[in-house]
């Protein structure tokens, strides 16, 4: 088993110490930062994501893998910066105005980070304009909106409308999620995508980045 396979295994086992040491060994073996990221860390997370979708493993297993991914990323980050390797993409996340629920949104953030995305989490009860301002500032191409309440769902449409008003809807895409939402309601409000849970959010955002 080569070092990248070992790194992938460490991620799948959710072993953060092993992931960090395997990443360090890969660096010592003069492997390229992009290769370590894609064929070690992200490869392991991809397997975990598939096994979760297939209902072979449980959410704690995914989150442990994400934690191991972070441990590897902490070791790899200086090399990535030095090599100019970019993240998979920048995502603005937040719970919309009037809604204080953040458990689902936090899970999405953890899993997106685990999948190699750069996350800017604006927290809860976020004004419409802040999402767009943050996306412009960070040059993010996707905004993820979360809501738990049917009463706060209209705030999602306000953000989508504001994005159109500012003429940014071609550059910045909107993905929505949360308990009261469905594909149908996402379509109605004009969102680009909908994710039913944290795992599918990762897959949907990967597809949106293509």
């Amino acid at each position: 088993m080569n070092i990248l396979q070992k790194l992938s295994e460490a991620i799948q086992q959710g072993d953060d110490r092993l992931a960090a040491s395997a990443t360090q060994k890969a660096i010592e073996q003069q492997l390229q930062a992009a290769e370590i990221l894609n064929n070690g860390l992200i490869a392991g997370m991809d397997i975990i994501g598939q096994r979760f979708r297939d209902m072979e493993i449980f959410l704690p297993d995914v989150l442990m893998a994400a934690r191991a991914m972070h441990a590897g990323m902490d070791v790899l980050k200086p090399l990535l910066l030095q090599a100019g390797v970019e993240s998979r993409g920048k995502i603005i996340l937040g719970t919309v105005k009037g809604d204080l629920h953040d458990i689902g949104k936090n899970l999405v953030a953890i899993m997106l980070k685990g999948a190699g995305f750069e996350i800017f989490d604006l927290g809860v009860d976020v004004e419409a304009g802040r999402f767009i301002d943050a996306a412009v500032k960070e040059k993010a191409s996707i905004i993820g909106l979360s809501a738990l309440l049917t009463t706060t769902m209209p705030a999602m449409k306000e953000i989508i409308d504001l994005l159109k008003e500012r003429g940014l809807s071609d550059q910045i895409k909107i993905i929505v999620g949360g308990a009261p939402l469905s594909q149908e309601s996402a379509n109605t409000m004009g969102a680009n995508s909908y994710a039913k849970d944290a795992a599918s959010a990762v897959e949907t955002i990967k597809a949106m980045m293509v």
């Binding site: 449980f58 704690p60 989150l63 442990m64």
Partner: peptide, 22 residues
Amino acid sequence: THLLISDHTRRHFKKEILFPGP
């Protein structure tokens, strides 16, 4: 803020909670 990856959760969740089939 959550216990999803707590050692306590990971030790007990598969035995304490029944996971039904599809």
